[in-house]
Amino acid sequence: MGELALQSVDLAFGGLKALRGVSLALGGRGVIGLIGPNGAGKTTCINVMTGMIAPSAGDITLDGASLLGLAPSELRRRGISRTFQAGRLFSALSVHENVAAAAVGLGRSRGQADKAADATLEWMGIAALGGRRAATLSYADQRRTAIARALVETPAFLLLDEPAAGMSQQEAAELGTLIRRIHKELGVAVLLVEHNITLVLSVCDHIHVLDSGAEIAAGSPDEIRASSAVREAYLGSSLERQEAARAEVAA
């Protein structure tokens, strides 16, 4: 498995510093989590890693070679795939066509794209959804389809931008299982940007915490849970709130 890395990346929008010296590596340490309050720069990291935004300073590398200046579609061909906060499916196309369109984008013929889409939907266990128009899907199924579209032809890296947003606890737990499977069975390196801290702590092997564009902590889930800096800045309130809510549901 290769390594995709942000190296001391700065990003400024005018006077606003969206990222400050962020370094992050995907590939070596299993599923990587990226958390932080709103506006911390999590999605921006994904945008930089997929070539949608060029950093003001620093580098993005794949196995040591710089990816700066390459188009998002070229990065996708090199195995860097992503999902979006809002699923952004092609709503008039069927689930199967959404996934096939991504394979077409990778240069496959229509026949090959159909096969690739079949295989991905089958692997995810949502083959039954194939013929449905994307606009008619439930929220959770839209999310699954978006993941399938990103997963077709098995990329080396999958960057998930808040995949659990709007999901029930049950659906989020299933998503967690799916993310582990994507990593274990397909050997895909996953970056998970997510507000659902319970999910992040249970799924990730290594977690980075951003605040105002800079990393304030990094470590294993246990280390992050224990970190006072993280608790203070962000996690404490949000974790306690989520766990209180869960206790309420359980009671």
Partner: peptide, 10 residues
């Protein structure tokens, strides 16, 4: 339907 998305998918 979504030109930029399609373009991003290659």
């Amino acid at each position: 339907e979504n030109f930029l998305m399609a373009r991003m998918l290659g």
